[in-house]
């Protein structure tokens, strides 16, 4: 019988330590599938930052470098410029990328560095226990906005695809969601397009993946998916924000 579903070889044969229902696992899995479909498992370097995404160091079986909080795009700049034939990508969360690492992501995008940024957005700081992120929704509760995010004092959700798409250099900027199978398939195709663009020497590619955080949102895994559809995705519209032929 033909085997249709199996664990990608570039993922360690172990259980994920991500919280039950967390879509980080799924994001890791579809990225690994793309790496293997493109036969890049022996030719890629993953730059991991600080946050729940750091746990990728435990799960991947590819060359990896752990970087400081927010600095993955700077580290990837050094990696890719000195190892031009490697498939280089970062996998960053929203606190890492949109707060402490804002200068690094925008500057790398603006220089048109030829690597791929995968941006997992769950609107909260997961690893540190659920504090407000730049991407937290208006009114959304977190441990540092216990009555809900008040835009008067903490601003509004920051939309990174829209910001990066204003720059001239980036070649592919898109936002997908992992809340249901149809969207997962689209996300995987988007990651593949980004990697192919990079391998063709095209330039900077940015793929945002909307994910959940059941633990820190205080919701069951299933309810967290409904919350995404009803609340998160309307604030972060899905779609391709930039697609330049290379």
């Amino acid at each position: 019988m033909e085997q249709l579903y199996k664990r990608p070889k570039c993922i360690q044969p172990m259980q994920s330590g991500y919280c039950p229902g967390c879509l980080h696992s799924l994001a890791t899995r579809i990225t690994a599938e793309v790496v293997e479909e493109l036969e890049q498992q022996n030719n890629c370097i993953l730059v991991l930052p600080v946050g729940c995404s750091t746990m990728g160091l435990l799960y991947w079986k590819i060359d990896m470098v752990g970087s400081a909080h927010g600095r993955a795009p700077a580290v990837a700049t050094g990696v890719k410029r000195c190892s031009k034939n490697s498939l280089v990508f970062t996998y960053q969360g929203d606190g890492d990328l949109a707060a402490i690492g804002l200068a690094e992501i925008l500057s790398a995008a603006n220089r048109g560095e030829n690597y791929t940024v995968l941006f997992a957005n769950n609107s909260i700081y997961g690893m540190t226990g659920g504090q407000m992120a730049p991407t937290t929704l208006e009114g959304q509760k977190s441990t540092t906005t216990q009555k809900g995010r008040d835009p008067l004092t903490t601003g509004y959700p920051m939309r990174m695809c829209e910001l990066i798409a204003t720059l001239d250099a980036p070649k592919y900027v898109a936002r997908f969601s992992l809340h249901d199978p149809a969207n997962v398939r689209k996300a995987k195709a988007g990651i593949k397009k980004a990697f192919e663009t990079q391998l063709a020497g095209g330039g900077f590619t940015f793929v945002e993946l909307m994910i959940n955080c059941p633990t820190n949102w205080g919701l069951t895994p299933l309810d967290s998916l409904t919350y995404m559809v009803e609340n998160t995705i309307p604030v972060f519209p899905l779609g391709v924000y930039k697609d330049v032929e290379v």
């Binding site: 370097i45 730059v47 470098v65 600095r71 700077a74 580290v75 050094g78 000195c82």
Partner: peptide, 20 residues
Amino acid sequence: VQGESEVASINMVYGAATVG
């Protein structure tokens, strides 16, 4: 690379060092 900051620059060096 003219980095966007000293912080970014040292991290670019870190990245370059990882690939020898």
